[in-house]
Amino acid sequence: MNEKSAAAHRASDLDYRARLETLLDSAMTPAQKYRRFAIQIGIIAVTVAVLYITALHTNVSIAELVRGIPAIADYVSRMYPPDWGYTRVILEPTLETVEIAIWGTFLGILLGIPLGLMAARNISPHVIVYASARFILNSLRGVSELVFALIFVSAVGLGPFPGILALALHNAGMLGKFYAEAIETIDPGPMEALEATGASWLQIIAFAIIPQVIPHFVTYNMYRFEVSIRAATVLGLVGAGGVGFHLISSIRLFDYRETAVVLIVIILLVVITDYLGALLRAKII
């Protein structure tokens, strides 16, 4: 042990205190301190400026919102009481919505897994594969389900099938990115150990990676299923099947009491999905 520091441990020693002060001050020169302060002020200024300018351009206005409150209240009041008889009409389309979400999520997972594996920096076989997988994922995410649905409706006709395809592509883009990020944060130790045994790329993935990412995998899939249910309710808007058609037509025909029923059913679906997802996660994690 260092004699010099042991001798210096007398707290009353003024030299010792001065030495500590010098050390503390040496962490940052006044110029560095000034620069850090300037950067912090700069970040705050830019954030405020961006929020202010974008608010001007998008007409964000609390006054408008306050003025609009009576209209909103009027809208909501017309939804009451919900027309429960309408439940029978939307039962089948609702089921169709769930079916669209199931297949849209399932196909999204199937497509997302290989893309996710290729887009994870730490296991991607080649940098070109990595870059292309990222690009594909970004493109899939960049286009909304609704746009995909329009394209597929014109390609394969009206009905739930174009809705499924649209959801699948968008889900694949989302899930692939989530998977890739989950894989990038795993503990590399087991991978190294399996590599040392002479295991192949796929074997390493099967034994060192998949067991580590399963909890994330389940969480993301459940989340996307929930989002898909919500998205599938809107797909009816463009003729891609499901309860969305009834949602939009009831609003267009001013049958707000029917709109209320559709909204309640959709909320119920999301609540049930969330509950089932929590149950599943508790079992797996």
Partner: peptide
């Protein structure tokens, strides 16, 4: 506070680690 930082440095110095404080 500065006082708390100095105390923390002193604790680090007791195990001869003050030079790696930052």
């Amino acid at each position: 506070s500065r006082e708390e930082k100095l105390r923390a440095l002193e604790c680090l110095d007791r195990v001869d680690m003050a030079h790696k404080a930052f």
